[in-house]
């Protein structure tokens, strides 16, 4: 593995472990603007319609882990799970691109000798 990849992986792991800063720093704050699960408009409570059954790690937490310590743990787990999935999916898209190229016959002999 190239050294820059090793270094970047270390940075990513550190960011995962530090990620709870992202909730602890804003613990007593509300949601981001426009991301409320309900909001008071005048005297009425408005709730956005929901179309899906919800996400497995909604709000980057394991369901039910609510205090600061457990939520931080849930956040770290979510960070690792998310990182794994985005890497997998972006490499998947790149792979799909390769297949697409082969079908389109973009790879000349030049490209092949370059590979591997």
């Amino acid at each position: 593995m190239e050294t820059w990849i090793k270094k970047t992986v270390i940075v990513i792991v550190i960011l995962c472990l530090l990620s709870p800063i992202g909730i602890l720093l804003t613990w007593n704050y509300g949601d981001a603007w426009g991301e409320w699960s309900e909001v008071k408009v005048g005297n009425e409570t408005w709730e956005p319609k929901s179309y899906s059954g919800g996400a497995p790690l909604a709000d980057y937490d394991v369901p039910g882990w609510e205090d600061q310590f457990m939520a931080s743990l849930g956040y770290i787990i979510s960070a690792f799970v998310g990182v794994f999935m985005v890497i997998l999916m972006s490499l998947g898209v790149a792979k799909l691109g390769e297949i697409y190229n082969e079908i389109r016959g973009k790879n000349t002999e030049d490209d092949r000798s370059d590979r591997d």
């Binding site: 960011l15 990620s19 992202g22 909730i23 981001a32 960070a79 990182v83 985005v86 490499l91």
Partner: peptide, 14 residues
Amino acid sequence: GMLSAFVFLVMMFN
């Protein structure tokens, strides 16, 4: 791949 992980993580820091 590395950048997708980085983008995912920086968005976790509220």
